[in-house]
Design a binder for these strands. Sequence first.
DNA 1: TTATATGTTCGATA
DNA 2: TTATCGAACATATA
Length: 261
Amino acid sequence: MPELPEVETFRKYFEGTSLNHKITNIEVESPKLVKPGVDTFKQAVLGLSFTGSDRIGKYLFPLLSNDKAMVMHFGLTGKLEYFKDMEDLPRFTRVLFYFDNDFKLAYICMRKFGWVDLTDSVASYKEKFKIGDDALKLTYDSFYNKIRKKKTLIKPTLLDQKITAGIGNWIADEILYQSKIHPETRVDSLNESDFKTLYEKIKYIMETAVKHDADQSALPEDFMIHNRKEGGKCHHTEGEIVRIEVGGRGTYFSPQWQKVR
DNA sequence: TTATATGTTCGATA
DNA sequence: TTATCGAACATATA
């Protein structure tokens, strides 16, 4: 589920539910997902409360009342749920935060590719893990300077969180479709006009998806997402959508619309 | 049973 | 040293 637009909806949900309640207990179902180790994590967080949030790309930073921050990544299948009665405990809850108002916040992750961590500050975390600029805040100069010397294929490059943070698999396909660029095009064969188009489509698609709270069905009808399956209809040509594998990820595109060059 | 899934990380290689 | 690539991770669903 979670690319930038989904994580932004998680962030708003988190802010609307989980702030300013003292954290009284933490239960961990999957210790491997708690990066600092369960004991360290509990010791650092118990008794504090969440005071706000930040987000870079797919990374959510719940801010803590000691001015440090938690880090949450949702992998492929993560989400949050705030609830009261334990009979409503969501399936696949991996970490459970108990608040002093009797409500709980569940960190849910079916496929266990997500994790939680701690950091002294959002800025130092971004620096340490070389996370790129958030796609919504990206400037053209920053994008161009990071991508210009790459020799990789464009699709894996768009997915590289060190270049732009927040683009995931379907959005990368959408960006390339709307930019009319074949996913296997080498970055060093793109020209400046292509980079400009890519940058504009990144912004446009992210802003549009966030505006609709990541609800894909609400996206404009010329978005490929609605036909993103083998044999799906291309909005611009008579051709069909085809599935190939690029950089190990399933990749959907329209060969008639996105020609190889 | 096999293929697929909206993601990152690590180790080998060039 | 640095960039790139593919495998690995865990689990459900079609």
